[in-house]
């Protein structure tokens, strides 16, 4: 679990949002994929697509038709192409403002922060716990890497699992 690469992803998504990009890509790893799927579930991203170095054809994405066979071939990970696979993310904007405006690491490569579900509960209620500031801004999300995979903080409280706090998104 490379927090260095995740930090790069955080900065990259912030920069891409500020530049009003519609589609951007990040290196494809399992951690990035599960975080991106969570971001999509929370409504920060419109699409998450696995692909190669060139952007996938997104014209057929919202029509309900299956993706072309070439896209499937791009998405298949083999031992030869694993280093060049990328995740293609669709960014969202509303009222000419980016939906994802801030994405910051909480754990750092040098200081990883593990929290119990009780502490995460405190943070979700807006209190501070274990050096992590509470979620006081409306709509703020915190992602936690747990035994059950990457979860949003509120889901952690619901399922009573703690874990490594990854990043906060707003």
């Amino acid at each position: 679990m490379s927090l260095v690469n995740l930090s790069h992803v955080c900065s990259h998504l912030q920069n891409a949002s500020k530049a009003r990009l519609g589609l951007t890509s990040i290196p494809s790893t399992n951690l990035h994929l599960s975080i991106c799927l969570n971001l999509q579930k929370q409504g920060f991203l419109s699409t998450v697509l696995r692909g190669g170095p060139s952007p996938p054809d997104t014209s057929t994405l919202h029509t309900g038709e299956p993706l072309p066979a070439s896209a499937d071939a791009e998405a298949t990970v083999t031992q030869e192409n694993v280093a060049t696979r990328r995740l293609w993310l669709g960014l969202k904007y509303w009222n000419s403002q980016p939906v994802l405006s801030e994405m910051k690491m909480v754990s750092k490569p040098k200081q990883r922060i593990q929290l119990s579900s009780l502490d995460i509960g405190r943070i979700v209620r807006g209190r501070e716990a274990g050096y992590v500031k509470g979620l006081t801004r409306p709509g703020e999300c915190l992602f936690v890497s747990t035994d059950k995979g990457v979860l949003e903080a509120r889901e952690c409280v619901e399922r009573k699992v703690g874990g490594l706090v990854l990043c906060r998104v707003n």
């Binding site: 929370q42 409504g43 920060f44 969202k92 509303w94 009222n95 403002q97 939906v99 409306p138 709509g139």
Partner: peptide
């Protein structure tokens, strides 16, 4: 506003 955030997401 929370409504705007919900609408955006």
């Amino acid at each position: 506003l929370p409504e705007d955030i919900a609408r955006a997401r």
